[in-house]
């Protein structure tokens, strides 16, 4: 009978497959994600899951910075915008193929974020949050004012769909697969990053940057690396947004989106990849569940009353969740899992 999980070697601690069952679980999740869902889900649910996937990519990126490196950003929507516009403009104006435009967009978003990442060497916490907020305002101003870049005040850049054989991003299935294949790659990358020297260095800087510096871990290098990787992934989520909607405009990447990314990782669980995905699903789908819940329990309200009630319920749900389970959804999931794993001696 298992009474706990103990690692005797360092290699065991950083193993991807911590238990033999994990490999099966991962294969099962992949099979459900890439086979069952596209075959079974209705187009509506494919659209919803695609939105969850895009949010999960952005939230996973932010979790690298906030959860693993201990920095904060209120500018991730801006970095997503840099990625989206770079990719969209490269394809639409320079006729670049998407496989060139997407990595370039990620690099552009990452490099742009370094300007603000430099501030992290001098300021922390709320001060850094405000410094990254500047990124948000600067990008929004550029998008609405530099019309020679965006082509007009609306800043509309069309994303030509990707079509490779039967794969077509104009269909809900094509969009879903594009987003979830990308999410799988991002998850694999971040999972491995955190098992690498760089990942451990980021965690060391997060936990105690002076001690880390004393151990030959450069806070400058790893804070900037965290900013770069995190923002490049945010840029990727901006690109995915463009392919999903078919275009981007200046009013998409707002401060509200940056705050939502933060809410996702807080609700899901800081410093946890599954937490990022669960948080993205929670924040994206809770308004839908609440909206469908009222008629299901026989409450019929006028549109005007219903919308304000739902907005309030959404706020209350997040508040309750943060108070009752501060470790987030992934913490809750682990508690439940451990309870059953240890049963009948779960205490």
């Amino acid at each position: 009978m298992e009474t706990g999980r103990f690692h005797e070697k360092y290699a065991e601690e950083i193993a991807v497959y911590g238990t033999p069952y994990r490999r099966i679980w991962i294969l099962a999740v992949l099979a459900v994600t890439f086979v069952v869902v596209p075959l079974v889900a209705s187009p509506y649910w494919l659209v919803v899951l695609t939105l969850v996937g895009i949010a999960a990519v952005g939230a996973t990126g932010l979790n690298v910075l906030v959860g693993y490196a201990g920095q904060i950003s209120l500018g991730h929507a801006a970095f997503a915008a840099v990625g989206a516009y770079t990719s969209g403009l490269l394809v639409s104006r320079a006729d670049a193929p998407f496989w060139v435009a997407i990595p370039t967009a990620m690099v552009a978003a990452g490099v742009f974020s370094l300007i603000f990442g430099l501030a992290s060497l001098r300021v922390k916490g709320l001060y850094l949050a405000i410094a990254t907020l500047a990124a948000q305002y600067i990008v929004q101003w550029i998008l609405s004012s530099w019309t020679w870049i965006t082509g007009g005040f609306q800043g509309i850049v069309i994303f030509e769909p990707i079509e490779i054989g039967p794969f077509d991003t104009t269909t809900p299935t094509g969009k879903y697969l594009l987003v979830f294949i990308t999410l799988a790659v991002v998850v694999m990358f971040v999972e491995n990053l955190m098992r690498s020297r760089s990942g451990r260095a980021m965690i060391a800087v997060r936990d105690q940057d002076i001690a880390a510096a004393g151990s030959a871990v450069s806070p400058l290098r790893y804070k900037l690396l965290a900013f770069f990787i995190s923002s490049a992934i945010a840029g990727l989520s901006g690109v995915l947004y463009g392919y999903n909607a078919g275009l981007v405009s200046t009013e998409v990447f707002t401060l509200a989106l940056s705050v939502q990314y933060l809410a996702m990782i807080l609700v899901g669980g800081l410093g946890s990849i599954p937490g990022s995905i669960l948080g993205a699903a929670f924040i994206t789908m809770l308004p839908i569940w609440l909206r469908d819940l009222l008629p299901a329990v026989g409450i019929e309200l006028s549109a005007s009353v219903e919308v304000h009630l739902l907005t309030m319920l959404f706020g209350v749900a997040i508040l309750l969740f943060l108070v009752l389970e501060p470790r987030g959804l992934y913490g809750l999931f682990r508690n439940i899992k451990d309870y059953f794993r240890m049963w009948p001696f779960s205490y």
């Binding site: 509506y44 659209v47 609306q154 009013e251 308004p287």
Partner: peptide, 30 residues
């Protein structure tokens, strides 16, 4: 906000809507 608008549009499609009225330029663009 655009993501909820995309979800709403998919729901309208599921409900068999034949036309959608949109409020706001950001949403009509998206």
């Amino acid at each position: 906000e655009v993501p909820p608008a995309l979800e709403a549009f998919a729901r309208f499609q599921q409900s068999g809507a034949v036309m959608v009225a949109v409020e706001g330029t950001a949403l009509s663009d998206a």
